[in-house]
Design a protein around this nucleic acid. Structure first.
Lengths: 137, 137
DNA sequence: TCTTGAAGCTCTAGTCACTGGAGGAATTAT
DNA sequence: ATAATTCCTCCAGTGACTAGAGCTTCAAGA
């Protein structure tokens, strides 16, 4: 039996976050000690590790809830789980594209600036004048 | 003289967002019509375009506030403006790195799954068992 | 057994950058 | 003149936590 602090240390999920996940229905409400403190077992540890991992991959809470629900029907096809992951991959790739454009734009803006006065500062000018941009955004 | 709706159409910034920027001190409180409606001029349009552009680049509101303050002292050196942009570039690159790792991990998880039952689903298994991951995260 | 300090509890509010709705007033078009 | 649209303010909600107040319980040492 683990206290919430033990669970936190073992999974790297902060204590208030564990309580938050309980509130969000990602983990079942834990058993309580006589003094009303949460007590966890091995399967809670596994569940929380699952959630942690999925969050690290950037999945949001509704997606995780769905994956948990799916994982509790081992005999069903896993097309839905694959779809969740695939949709997320698409979103990740879109973000990547956007960030790459930002990176280039920022590099360009910074490299054009000679570092003298604000009046001539390319950073400020580029922000003021969209026409100085390369490409659309 | 533009109404807030006109300004919104011209800049692509939604009406409530313009009011929000005013509240945040990014744009000055606009003049008002007799009936208390906001009326804007050319320089408001430019200021809002500046903000829009900076937000598109991912700069946060405090950074934009600082850039605006800097832009109002044309005779000062622009090292601070450059620093803001450079710091942001670093943050963008860090996010890029993280997302690339996520992309690979998701690709790997998805490609390993044969699409049959949840019981064998690699998506679910990979989330449950961190040991199946490549690299750290 | 007593004490003390850490860790637990609930509840509320704050974060960031908006976004949406209610309820009412002003403006514009017909 | 009337109808449709836009505007106003104020308040609440978003996502995924995070932090604090004020209180209770637990574990370890004396």
């Amino acid at each position: 039996m683990l206290s919430i602090g033990d669970l936190s240390k073992r999974t790297g999920v902060k204590v208030p976050t564990i309580r938050y996940y309980e509130q969000m229905g990602l983990i079942e409400a834990a058993e309580r000690s006589e003094g009303n403190q949460r007590r966890y077992e091995r399967h809670d540890l596994e569940r929380l590790a699952f959630i942690r991992h999925a969050r690290d991959l950037g999945l949001d809470i509704p997606a995780i809830r769905e994956l948990i629900a799916l994982s509790q029907h081992p005999d069903q096809p896993c097309a839905n789980a694959d779809r969740i992951a695939a949709d997320h991959l698409i979103a990740v790739r879109e973000k990547l594209e956007k960030l790459k454009k930002l990176e280039h734009e920022l590099e360009r803006i910074i490299s054009h600036c000679d570092g003298h006065s604000i009046e001539d500062c390319y950073v400020i000018r580029a922000l003021s004048d969209h026409g100085l941009c390369e490409g659309e955004h």
